[in-house]
Amino acid sequence: MITRFIDRHQRWLFPAPAVIFVVLMMVFPLGYTLWNSFSGWSLTAGRPNTFIGPQNYIALMTDGRFWNAVWNTLYFTALAMSVELVLGVAIALLLDAKDYRGKRVVTSILLLPMMATPVAVAMVWLLMFEPTAGVINFVLGEVGLPKPLWIAGSNSVIPSLVLVDVWEWTPLITLIVLAGLAGLPSEPFEAARVDGASYWQILGRVTLPMLLPTISVAGLLRFIDCIKTFDIIYGMTGGGPGFSSETLNIYTYNQAFYYFNFGYASALLVIFFTIVTGISLLVTYSRRRLEV
């Protein structure tokens, strides 16, 4: 009896646990956040979770800190991604160029930063960046170079944070690109060499175009991670000095867990989610066109 029921409903029953999980852990929170973004829920203002229409979104449009956060997020993401992509691909090409002894050791060492916990990384860099007692400025001072403020200056804070992100995540790009390089067919390279192409010609006309799908996947992964970077920024600056490293994620966190404006924070999250999804779809779509 039960066996027959199972047999007849196999295609519903077997995926059911996964479906329930996805609904509970992804669809429900998303839907609830969307609902909250149209509510005035705030503990500090004493407002309950009731519908107020698109007011939160309207308020966001004139919120200077929101636009500042959008700018900081894009600035951080663009800078970090471009540096990581260029460096990551370059390192992968270097590692792939020639076989030499200890190649695997070098690769393993390169991957070490990725293994570290971001909060621990943040703490270590925080100490190194310290303008008076930090090791970086000590070395710079010994060499006779000027000592920047690093994360304590409003102009230098985002490049400094990017430096940490680059240190930690460039190896990821390298790893993906190395895998991509290993999977490339050898015929086009041989043909190009027979035709007398130089290294740079092969790199620009053969290797990179063939690698493009791989690089775009690596770029997409890094984009999503960069735009939602939280741990290193929160751990090192908390959005400061002033608001000069306050990204959308940090601002949302402040609104939710320091100001207790849950409705407003939800609206921020919905906008954030839209940006990430939009750009991801764009990249996926353009990738498909590239491959055709």
Partner: peptide, 19 residues
């Protein structure tokens, strides 16, 4: 004040003084 004062709460400030 010391450089980097924008990132100082009391633990950082007190460290500068205590040193």
């Amino acid at each position: 004040g010391p450089p980097g004062v924008l990132n100082m709460s009391w633990p950082q400030a007190v460290a500068i003084f205590a040193q």
